[in-house]
């Protein structure tokens, strides 16, 4: 049975800031987005819709690859790297 994506992320070191480094503008999502690319391009499977149908991102497990940012044609993401001392810290890779 394949390893769950959560379990894979559990192997990585994440240093968590208090504030998210990715913010989604759901108004833009609603108005502009047609393909919901973030839902399936993210290699960490961090994007999902909540009960109200709003797009959310579990930024705590972000691998900082930027794929969602590059693929978001709607420009709905405010995406920065986490501050120094925070975010994923690879030990091998």
């Amino acid at each position: 049975m394949p390893m769950k994506i959560d379990a894979k992320l559990g192997l990585d070191v994440f240093k968590l800031d208090k504030e998210p480094h990715i913010v989604i503008d759901n108004d833009v999502c609603k108005a502009v987005c047609t393909d919901e690319a973030c839902l399936y391009v993210c290699p960490a499977d961090l994007y999902e819709r909540d009960d109200q149908g709003r797009m959310t991102v579990n930024w705590e497990g972000c691998l900082e690859c930027g794929t969602c940012l590059i693929c978001c044609d709607a420009k709905a993401l405010t995406w920065t790297y986490p501050r120094g001392q925070f975010g994923v810290q690879y030990r091998m890779s």
Partner: peptide
């Protein structure tokens, strides 16, 4: 044994 998972553009 998987030891790390990573991604990059």
């Amino acid at each position: 044994t998987v030891a790390e998972y990573s991604a990059h553009s």
